[in-house]
Design a binder for these strands. Sequence first.
DNA 1: TTAATATACTGACTTTCAGTCATTTATTAT
DNA 2: ATAATAAATGACTGAAAGTCAGTATATTAA
Lengths: 216, 216
Amino acid sequence: MGIAERREREKERRRNEIIDAAEKVFFAKGLANATMDDVAEEAELSKGTLYLYFKNKEELYLAINRRGLEILEKMFIDAAAQAQSGLEKVYAIGQSYFRFQNQYSDYFNAMIYYESHQIDFSEDNSCAMACDQQGEKTLRVLVEAIESGIKDGTIRPDVEPMKTALVLWGQSTGIMQICSLKGVHIEEEHNINPDDIIDLSFDLIKRALQNSKDKK
Amino acid sequence: MGIAERREREKERRRNEIIDAAEKVFFAKGLANATMDDVAEEAELSKGTLYLYFKNKEELYLAINRRGLEILEKMFIDAAAQAQSGLEKVYAIGQSYFRFQNQYSDYFNAMIYYESHQIDFSEDNSCAMACDQQGEKTLRVLVEAIESGIKDGTIRPDVEPMKTALVLWGQSTGIMQICSLKGVHIEEEHNINPDDIIDLSFDLIKRALQNSKDKK
DNA sequence: TTAATATACTGACTTTCAGTCATTTATTAT
DNA sequence: ATAATAAATGACTGAAAGTCAGTATATTAA
């Protein structure tokens, strides 16, 4: 009897429909200004039903963030595949992160939320845990790029891949967070193009990682 | 008649008392879990009075952040004064930022809030504007350290001080944000000490900035 | 076919809290 | 003393997250 299975599928579909609706509403109004009633209306469901599928507003928002992290992972994989050397892979991943921030700015905002709040990664916050896992997967692409760079000699052999990946992730996120939120302000105040800041950031990282003993 | 002046002084004192109370409450409970009624009680004032002194809850929190940025500026100045070369000054400023994050973690959390939210820097958000100005002052210490490094030859002459300062600020904030919020989690999951991540981050920055043509 | 059971959904209700404002209290000027 | 001004109050309002007793729909058993 496939009834239980069908029910499971329908439940999953409904769950995704709710996330779709939540994206529309949260992306249009911003998390703080959007209400669960707004989402319920967009999803053509009652508010109570939302809470059957998601523990609370934050969990729903984290479900959106998970989708963003999945997109980002794919972009990282593509970027790494395109590049030749390990160092170039790392650089290409950085560039793809930058593209993500531009093309999927709403998902990027969800990521800023995720990265700048104390999230409780416990059993009953399934979306938080899913974000954590997807984040690990996404980061692993960068770790592997660094490892390949050490192997092919383009990256200094004395860096620890995991630690370094965490540093690059944190640094890049920090830079793009500033440019995303305060970019206009920086432009007005200092006549500096935020994109230049991001370029410079990646340039500094490249210099810091490259193996000076690499034979060209 | 010094009555108006005395009134002004008393107003300023009361304002500071409110910020003191807000620090106690917000630092103990966190911004989201603290209420304006809590602050009012701690300040031994009615809630209405708080709104005579601060436009809203966010502005009050930003008043706290301004204090944090003032402390940070002093720490930057001290750090830079202690170091010899420009490059060392930059490194020392980074270290002092790290110390700030440890010693004043509550102020640092206020900074995370400030850096990760879309703040409206308009006329009638005086605390937001004050944060912006104080932020500029604090950043200027770093800009000057970079300039002195270019002058004394320890930092590559081809970096633009303001742009570079913004990059270092964003990168360092990003790293410390992660370590502050997800540090325990990183430690558990990867057996990596968050402090090592921060060390590595500063090491990479140093390598990226140093002038290879510097005669020792 | 119908009754019993299980599952999915609803929306009115509760609670909490930011922000307001008519009123009161305190201070200064006449 | 009294009027005028400034400072402070706290009950009230509106908004929104989250709950839950009740309704509707689908499935199974008799």
